[in-house]
């Protein structure tokens, strides 16, 4: 059976003047997959992610996200994806429940849906006591879990996670991945970047960006095999060592 393709990029390129941030990257992501998007700083990850989210128009190449074209149907793309980053996720000066209502409202959930969903969400995360607390007062790990749950509140086809677990403690980091697995089981495709190499192992497939090119794309197991490496850390090191470009 042919698996449903939710992200398809063909020779996707972004140039800034003479600088080629993302150079003809070609790949497919399947429904329900956990897709790891790795690369050194300045390798072109953020640029690629922006194009896939419909925030930046590519210079060349083609891509469809959830079946929508990245040039012409950016608005439809935005309705079908969720996004969460380490830097911005929730409003610190709103309470937990206000944040849930606000982001749910943005994606056009009805009041009834909102009510049932936010109750379920609060229960899953065990936040019953914190409902009316300001998000800013929560520990980082809780914030990140809440931010992820809010990002998938409208059941998007794909959720983009930009270093979601940076600086989070090891226990909460694992709880976060439990949430990712749950979402993936429900058929939500996960597109995730991380600096933790153990998390690369949790992905179904991992891609590796070096100097704007997609240097590798395979399952963690196969990558380790082809690079004769014991860990993903070594694979990363092997691939990134030759990098010319350093950015940010």
């Amino acid at each position: 059976m042919e698996k449903e393709i939710v992200i398809s990029a063909h020779k996707l390129t972004k140039k800034f003047g003479d600088f080629i941030a993302t150079n003809e990257i070609t790949f497919k992501v399947y429904a329900g997959e956990i897709f790891g998007f790795l690369g050194a700083n300045g390798a072109g990850k953020t640029t690629a992610m922006k194009m896939l989210c419909g925030l930046s128009i590519p210079s060349a190449g083609e891509a469809t996200i959830a079946g929508f074209d990245v040039y012409r149907e950016t608005e439809k793309i935005k309705q079908n994806i969720g996004y969460m980053s380490q830097k911005f996720s929730l409003y610190e000066d709103l309470t937990v429940v206000e944040n849930i209502r606000f982001f749910g409202g943005i994606y056009g959930l009805s009041n009834k849906e909102l009510k049932s969903k936010s109750e379920a969400l609060i229960k899953t995360l065990g936040l019953e006591k914190e409902v009316d607390k300001l998000v800013g007062s929560l520990p980082l790990g809780w914030k990140q879990k809440l931010a992820f749950s809010v990002a998938i509140l409208h059941e998007p086809k794909i959720v983009f996670l930009d270093e979601p677990t940076g600086g989070v403690d090891p226990v909460t980091r694992r709880q976060f991945w439990d949430l990712i697995y749950d979402a993936s089981d429900r058929g939500i495709t996960i597109f995730v970047t991380t600096h933790y190499m153990d998390e690369a192992e949790y992905c179904d497939r991992v891609s590796m960006m070096v100097d704007g090119y997609m240097k590798a794309l395979d399952s963690p197991e196969n990558l380790k095999k082809t690079h004769g490496a014991a860990t993903m850390d070594e694979v990363f090191f092997d691939l990134a060592r030759g990098a010319q470009r350093q950015g940010d």
Binding site: G166, F237, Q246
Partner: peptide, 10 residues
């Protein structure tokens, strides 16, 4: 080493 990639961290 926060926010720095593996190669630079090493």
């Amino acid at each position: 080493t926060t926010g720095v990639d593996t190669v630079s961290r090493k």
